[in-house]
Amino acid sequence: MSEKKQPVSRRQFLNYSLTGVGGFMAASMLAPMVRFAIDPVLEATSGSEMHAVVDVSEITTEPQRFDWTVNQVDAWYTSDVTKSAWVYKDENDEIVALSPTCKHLGCAVSWASNPDYPEEFFCPCHEGRYYKSGLNVPDTPPNAALDLFEYEVKDGTLHLGNIVENTVQEGGA
């Protein structure tokens, strides 16, 4: 966390897998050719930034939380930011990767963390609740479903990208 003076250091190139949108955009502006030389992951996803998160074999039908770190560059700051997702396979064997950010005021929700609601996501801040699909439980503070991450499976590894709106209408299984 000390050597953040140069926007594109050699180390950052080598650390591409931890490098977020901003850092990587800076890198690609300065050295567009290098990008293709580094890694196949990047070729496939030159549009949006995908991060390797977990081996698909670890994903079960029970939502689990996975964390990863991205290097985020805002106008004046470079910082390592930890991100999280709740990931599971639904009844059609499709991967679902939900953002943990509560749609009320942004606390992190957890699966089955409240013994009264073992089959729901629960927000510890003001008792917001969500079904497994991410849909918000009526009459709790949140007024929208948990967002989803764009995802991609490459060589047995789940990669997560941008956050997109979750359009589910019904509760999960």
């Binding site: 930890t82 509560c102 009320h104 005021l105 942004g106 606390c107 992190a108 801040c125 003001h126």
Partner: peptide
């Protein structure tokens, strides 16, 4: 930072 990230809303 991590505490804040988990409990931003409160």
């Amino acid at each position: 930072d991590e505490l804040e990230r988990n409990y931003t809303g409160r």
